Computed example of a mutant assay.
Amino acid sequence: MTDPAVGTLRVNGATLHYEVRGRGPLLLLIPGGTGGAASFDGIADDLAGAYTVATYDPRGMSRSTLDDPEAEQHVAEHAEDAFRLLDRLSPGEPARVFGASSGAIVAVHMLTTRPERVARVVAHEPPLVEVLPDAAEHRALVARVRETFRTQGLMPAMAVLAAGLSKDGGATAPEAGTGLPPRAAARAERTMADLPYFVGRIVPGFMTHAPDLSRLEALSDRLVLACGEDSRGELPHRATAFLAERLGTKLRYFPGGHIGLTTHPAAFGACLQKALCD
């Protein structure tokens, strides 16, 4: 594994930690959940053979600190952070962007708001549940997660969220590090530390975000929507497949499930390489 160049970037209300590897056109990788830049350790070196690969911890996660730790989080502000990184690392040149889960929501928003800065977006299972016909049901899920977190704490709220995302409503919150490759398991402590922020700030702010569908239709030739081979029926997969059908675009399948990036890094990275070039 190559040691990346590490930097910090001051943005509105936060200081971002970012890492850069490789040479070539810029590829910005936006993590989902509580992964941070480290979630891309399994694929970044391979991608750096063809791209300048930039990874970062989103505001409030891991090493990217907030001025106000209690601040509400919004997709537009996270997208502006990503644009600030593009301006620093690739000024004036459109970049390729990959996002996973909540990071994919940010990537899609970037495409619709400043398409001149984005050459291609690959979005893996963005939980854009507002596009679904039963969106009201999922808004109610977000409200239950938030109330459970407030009244019962983190793990009960995680269980409510996991059940709502699953195929049959019967999932429970996973144990950190269970069944993961060693490098991913080693990140479990940091992941657990970020979970309260994710459940309390990211889930409410992101899962109620509605994309600009008319703009996406006009820009669909630059958008690749991808799902996990093993996540059919789960809520993020449903939302992504519905969006692909709505836009009339082909849905790509990547190995593993919603966290295939973590469980199948080599095969996932190979699929991403292909999606960036096709």
Results as ranks from 00 to 15, higher is better:
residue 63 R to I: 10
residue 248 G to S: 07
residue 119 A to V: 07
residue 124 H to G: 01
residue 97 V to A: 07
residue 108 V to D: 06
residue 117 R to D: 04
residue 186 A to D: 15
residue 270 A to S: 09
residue 145 V to N: 04
residue 118 V to R: 02
residue 48 A to S: 15
residue 172 T to I: 10
residue 204 P to F: 07
residue 116 E to Q: 12
residue 193 A to P: 04
residue 35 G to P: 08
residue 269 G to I: 05
residue 145 V to L: 10
residue 57 D to V: 05
residue 47 L to F: 06
residue 156 P to N: 11
residue 272 L to Q: 05
residue 242 F to W: 15
residue 271 C to E: 14
residue 22 G to W: 08
residue 122 V to D: 08
residue 185 A to W: 06
residue 59 R to C: 03
residue 213 L to S: 08
residue 145 V to E: 04
residue 146 R to W: 00
residue 184 A to H: 09
residue 107 A to S: 11
residue 49 G to E: 13
residue 219 L to A: 09
residue 160 V to E: 13
residue 267 A to P: 01
residue 176 A to N: 02
residue 91 P to G: 10
residue 121 V to E: 03
residue 69 P to T: 06
residue 204 P to K: 07
residue 22 G to D: 04
residue 143 A to K: 09
residue 239 A to G: 02
residue 184 A to Q: 12
residue 105 I to D: 02
residue 86 L to I: 15
residue 249 T to N: 03
residue 251 L to D: 01
residue 155 M to A: 10
residue 8 T to W: 08
residue 90 S to F: 06
residue 22 G to P: 04
residue 122 V to N: 05
residue 78 H to Q: 13
residue 156 P to M: 07
residue 19 E to W: 00
residue 190 R to C: 01
residue 47 L to G: 03
residue 87 D to S: 05
residue 61 M to T: 09
residue 127 P to N: 12
residue 136 A to I: 13
residue 247 L to P: 02
residue 46 D to T: 15
residue 29 L to H: 06
residue 25 P to R: 10
residue 64 S to W: 03
residue 85 L to P: 01
residue 278 D to F: 09
residue 183 R to Q: 09
residue 1 M to R: 14
residue 224 V to F: 01
residue 54 A to G: 14
residue 203 V to R: 04
residue 193 A to N: 07
residue 120 R to T: 12
residue 267 A to F: 02
residue 143 A to M: 04
residue 173 A to F: 05
residue 2 T to S: 13
residue 150 R to C: 00
residue 182 P to K: 11
residue 153 G to M: 06
residue 52 T to G: 07
residue 84 R to P: 00
residue 87 D to I: 00
residue 127 P to A: 13
residue 80 E to C: 00
residue 66 L to D: 00
residue 130 E to I: 03
residue 247 L to W: 03
residue 38 A to I: 09
residue 41 D to Y: 12
residue 109 H to A: 14
residue 227 C to L: 09
residue 209 H to V: 04
residue 30 I to D: 06
residue 93 E to S: 14
residue 159 A to N: 15
residue 24 G to I: 13
residue 261 L to C: 08
residue 222 R to C: 08
residue 12 N to V: 13
residue 170 G to I: 01
residue 278 D to L: 12
residue 156 P to Y: 06
residue 161 L to M: 14
residue 232 R to P: 00
residue 212 D to H: 06
residue 223 L to M: 07
residue 32 G to D: 08
residue 208 T to R: 13
residue 152 Q to T: 06
residue 262 T to G: 00
residue 229 E to Q: 14
residue 226 A to E: 05
residue 79 A to M: 04
residue 231 S to D: 09
residue 127 P to L: 12
residue 203 V to A: 06
residue 184 A to F: 10
residue 99 G to E: 06
residue 154 L to A: 08
residue 45 D to V: 04
residue 216 L to Y: 03
residue 256 G to T: 04
residue 151 T to K: 12
residue 40 F to E: 03
residue 144 R to W: 04
residue 159 A to S: 14
residue 253 Y to T: 15
residue 229 E to K: 14
residue 163 A to T: 02
residue 112 T to E: 15
residue 177 G to T: 08
residue 54 A to Q: 08
residue 67 D to F: 08
residue 129 V to D: 01
